[in-house]
């Protein structure tokens, strides 16, 4: 295992920025593009309450690339017109030192997501940590696995977009 250099850190931070920009724009194709093409590319959004008790039930359980793609289909095609799109601003802060092991970078970041409904005031949607595994894919860093562990015991509303 190795620490990583400044240039790699910059690339890693750039990936985090692309990710939160995609979600802030509610651009699900851009969200998908932050993940590796690997068939095992995965995204999990899970309550800290479950993680702490060793329970696997998640808010979103996309354990393969196909299900990542399907989530994009649901949000942008199946659910069209059903939900009122809500504005989000993601804030992300890398914590600890990223670790490089066998071509995979492991990195942990804190996140918070503020939301503002149409005609309403802003509030926190969720806070938590991203636990990411990042690989080089098509010349760029992309997520092989991303797990958003949210502290927010009671979510303030129903959820459409990934954290």
């Amino acid at each position: 295992m190795l620490g990583i250099d400044e240039a790699s850190l910059a690339l890693l931070d750039n990936l985090q920025r692309r990710y939160i920009e995609a979600l802030d724009r509610r651009d699900m194709e851009a969200w998908l593009d932050c993940f590796s093409q690997d068939a095992d590319a995965s995204y999990f959004c899970i309550a800290a309450e479950n993680v702490e008790r060793g329970l696997e039930i998640a808010l979103m359980y996309d354990d393969c690339r196909a299900r990542l793609t399907d989530r994009v289909t649901f949000i942008s095609k199946v659910w069209t017109g059903t939900f009122q799109p809500y504005r989000m601003r993601h804030f992300v802060q890398r914590i600890g030192t990223p670790i490089l092991d066998h071509g995979k970078l492991s990195v942990v970041s804190n996140f918070s997501i503020a939301t503002t409904p149409e005609g309403g005031s802003s509030s926190l949607l969720a806070v938590g940590q991203y636990e990411d595994s990042v690989v080089l894919d098509r010349g760029e860093l992309r997520f092989l696995r991303k797990r958003a562990v949210y502290d927010t015991t009671v979510l303030p509303r129903y959820i459409v977009y990934p954290f």
Partner: peptide, 18 residues
Amino acid sequence: IRNINLVGPAGYISMEDG
């Protein structure tokens, strides 16, 4: 566990109830 995407606060067939 994999079927969980169907139901819950972000479920494919339950989100809209909220």
